[in-house]
Write a protein that binds this DNA or RNA. Structure first.
Length: 559
RNA sequence: UGCCCGGUCGUCUAACGGCAGGACGGUGGUCUUUGGAACCAUCGAUGGAGGUUCGAAUCCUUCCCGGGCAACCA
């Protein structure tokens, strides 16, 4: 099938639809998109999908993508969120052609409203909130017209002006589009364009006392920016008819088109802003950037790279199936792919067991040559100190090992990575029977990890020299929720995984002493870890980004 | 139940009337100074019923299932 076809980039229906437009010369072959977040929360990996679509597609077609804050609801929005959003978009590696705000267009939008009123296509309505709902009818019954539907144009214009000036209290009036109270599409039953809100806006201050609704502001903002392709999620499908209505009935002079795609759902987490906010507010997590959160700031803190996120977006594709749930294993895979290629290998022990090499000279230290990354020869080598006393992983010793256990046990010989072969000759226990120290002997001729006589060992262990070890706090993260899909659970909060975070007091090799925050490493045989922002040279902190695939652990579990 | 949208391996996603393919996952293996990585093999799907057609995942009918729409949210 793909013998000699060069279909490298997996396509999707949005890419094809743009391609069709470009080929047909629609919009003169121009491609302009926009990413339109509301600054009322932090971006999560679902937004990353939208960012990847909007910025990525524009990039692919030599077009432009704007960042536009959909700031039409001053009661919920804040500059703190806007700043965080900008940071996250840039972190993902994208640059906006223009930085805009729906609030930049409040003036233009107001003029469009006057235009609509003059065309008898909009009116000022005095119905109460409850009456508006009643008059709208139901999904099965048509609505009925507002008594203000035929209000004279001059009166509408006057009322609009006075609404804007703050002469009326909130809820006294609304501005509505005059469309069709019997439309089978509820969105078309004279939707609201403006509501009175006498509150300051984070950008326009107290210049306005009325604020536009999403449906009214969005399409026209797209038109003002000359957007060609306006991508949004499936729940706005019914809004498209209204989007077109506003664009077609005003003199915006542009014809952007809206297309919908399925939002991302990821297993073992929640994605709604409301729930994310609740997790933060109620203290179920440490903050928006808690490494267990699906927020971009949380993923970043955990050590997930932007490259991995973009690769993930490409892997999951884009479609219109609305009940999909992507297995988080897909994300883990993308993370490992990236980090395997780039993260330097180091040695760290997170559950230490002391080992003494009985026949190694006391007080002696030697520098062992270690490769930094077998996947990348250019990463070079480093020296790691070795001595008579070492820490190994407690898991790497068993007094009574099962079949196929290749690690250390009484009488067994293993390799200490890059160093020597050692054989276990002694097991020390405390009064409770817990192993507290191992005695081993080493083969001095096996320096570097290979015996001159050609004998092989099955197991290779990572280690850290006791006198050179740097203590480190190692935070192990796991899925925030136990259920694959916690969202529909009545008591979703009680599904939080009690083991979603665990802190270990471990030791790392001295080369890590000055590792800067955010830097990623592979702790050999354990996983990928990133330096936490809390880390300081005298108290190192690492976050586990993702574990290594572990076929031994898997075999144990299934066996 | 009115309108709109959607159902393809366990999961995500291709196939645009012409051999149902890829990725993740699973399983088995090769290799290995990470039980990592890499490599190989393998498991595995068109919601049901009719119809159109030489030929249907694709077109039509119907049924079933899922999602969205009746905020002065976006």
């Amino acid at each position: 099938m793909s013998t000699n076809e060069t279909d490298e980039k997996p396509s999707n229906f949005l890419r094809e639809l743009i391609q069709k437009d470009v080929t047909a010369g629609t919009h003169a072959g121009r491609v302009a998109t926009r990413f339109p977040p509301e600054p009322n929360g932090y971006l999560h990996i679902g937004h990353a999908k939208s960012i990847w679509i909007n910025f990525g597609l524009a990039e692919d077609f030599g077009g432009t993508c704007n960042l536009r804050f959909d700031d039409t609801n001053p009661e919920k929005e804040d500059i703190e969120y806007a700043e965080a959003i900008k940071r996250d978009v840039e972190w993902l590696g994208y640059r906006w052609a223009g930085l805009h705000h729906a609030s930049d267009y409040f003036g233009r939008l107001y003029d469009f409203a006057r235009e609509l009123i003059e065309k008898r296509l909009a009116y000022v309505c005095s119905l109460t909130e409850e009456d508006i709902r009643l008059y709208r009818g139901t999904v099965k019954e048509p609505g009925k017209p507002s008594p203000d539907r035929e209000r004279p144009t001059a009166e509408n214009l006057d009322l609009l002006e006075r609404m804007k000036n703050g002469e009326f209290p909130d809820a006294q009036y609304t501005v509505r589009a005059k469309i069709d109270m019997a439309s089978p599409n509820m969105k078309m039953r004279d939707p609201l364009m403006y509501r009175i809100r006498r509150v300051p806006h984070w950008r326009t201050g107290d210049a306005w006392n009325i604020y536009p609704m999403y449906d009214y502001a969005h399409g026209l903002s797209d038109a003002i920016e000359n957007i060609t392709h306006s991508f949004c999620t499936l729940e706005f499908e019914n809004n498209r008819e209204l989007y077109d209505w506003f664009v077609d009935n005003t003199s915006s002079g542009a014809k952007p088109r809206q297309y919908e795609f399925a939002r991302l759902n990821l297993s073992h987490t929640v994605m709604s802003k409301r729930r994310l906010l609740q997790l933060v507010k109620e203290g179920h997590v440490k903050g928006w950037d808690d490494p267990r959160m699906p927020t971009l700031s949380g993923l970043r803190r955990r050590g997930v790279t932007p490259e991995a996120i973009r690769d993930f977006c490409e892997r999951i594709g884009v479609a219109r199936k609305d009940d999909s749930l992507v297995d988080v294993a897909m994300l883990d895979h993308a993370i490992r792919e990236d980090l395997n290629r780039r993260a330097p290998r180091v040695m760290a022990v997170i559950d230490p067991l002391k080992v003494v090499i009985d026949n190694y000279p006391e007080g002696q230290t030697e520098d062992i040559d270690c490769e930094n990354n077998p996947e990348d020869p250019a990463a070079g080598m480093r020296k790691v100190p070795f001595s008579r006393e070492l820490y190994i992983e407690r898991d790497d010793f068993m007094e009574a090992p099962p079949k196929k256990y290749f690690r250390l046990s009484p009488g067994a010989e293993v390799r200490l990575k890059h160093a020597y072969f050692v054989k276990c000759v002694r097991v020390e226990k405390d009064s409770a029977g817990k192993v507290i120290e191992l005695g081993v002997t080493y083969d001095p001729t096996s320096r570097g990890g290979e015996a001159p006589d050609g004998r092989k060992v099955k197991g290779t262990l990572h280690w850290v020299s006791v006198p050179h070890a740097r203590p480190a706090e190692v935070r192990l993260y796991d899925h925030l929720f136990r259920a694959e899909d916690p969202a529909p659970l009545e008591d979703w909060l009680s599904d939080i995984n009690p083991d979603s975070v665990a802190s270990k007091a471990g030791f790392v090799e001295p080369s890590l002493a000055e590792a800067p925050a955010g830097r990623s490493f592979q702790f050999m045989r354990l996983g990928y870890f990133a330096v936490d922002p809390d880390s300081r040279p005298d108290s190192l902190v690492f976050n586990r980004t993702v574990g290594l695939r572990d076929s031994w652990a898997k075999a144990q579990k299934s066996g």
